[in-house]
Structures are given as structure tokens and as C-alpha cells.
């Protein structure tokens, strides 16, 4: 079971602000997800290799060859607060306090 405190903890890590109502709902939904995973855990999977991916590919790599970067202005124009040719953000330290 996921309790209220755990929901708030995860929300904090994801920088989400949840209403009390959201917290209640999420606690229920997340608990449901875990219960589902628990059910899968009941399957007898002895001898089945664990996988981390749904496709059975390996070593999808690219050669170390430069490709043109995007124009700086084009990238900065999409940012909420560009300044001095860079992405300006609120001080992360203030955020952590």
C-alpha cells in the first residue's frame, strides 16, 4: 500500500504540487499499480531470463561522427527566459531551501 506520505514524497521529487484530493486519488491508484505488479510476481518464472527491454535488440550504436548542432537562437527561442546567450533559470539553491 502507498500511503499519503509516500505520495507526497514522490510528488516532491517530481516537483508536483498536488491537492489533498489528488493525494488521496494517487494513493489509491499507485497502490493499485503495485498490487498488479505483485500479481505478476506470483507467476512461476524460474528459468526465464530477466529482460530490461521489450525488443530483443542489442548494441544499437552510432559512429562518432559530428552532425550539425541546431542554431543557438532557435533553441533559446523555445526557452522561457533566455539571457546572455544562455538558458536563465531561478537559482536552484533557492529552490532547494
Amino acid at each position: 500500500m502507498i500511503d499519503r506520505e509516500q505520495v507526497l514524497h514522490v510528488a516532491r521529487l517530481a516537483r508536483l504540487r498536488l491537492s489533498d484530493e489528488d493525494v488521496e486519488r494517487m494513493a489509491g491508484e499507485l497502490s493499485g499499480v503495485l498490487a498488479h505488479v505483485d500479481r505478476i510476481g506470483e507467476l512461476d518464472l524460474d528459468g526465464v531470463e530477466p529482460t530490461t527491454h521489450v525488443v530483443s535488440l542489442e548494441n544499437v550504436l552510432r559512429p562518432d561522427e559530428p552532425r550539425p548542432s541546431w542554431p543557438k537562437e532557435a533553441m533559446l527561442d523555445r526557452a522561457p527566459d533566455p539571457a546572455d546567450g544562455a538558458f536563465r533559470v531561478p537559482s536552484p539553491q533557492a529552490d532547494a531551501q
Partner: peptide, 11 residues
């Protein structure tokens, strides 16, 4: 690192 108001990010 402490005490700054805003930061610029260079990617």
C-alpha cells in the same frame, strides 16, 4: 554556489 538569485545554463 550559495546565495545566488539566478543561474545561466550552458548546454
Amino acid at each position: 554556489i550559495h546565495g545566488s538569485g539566478a543561474s545561466l545554463v550552458d548546454f
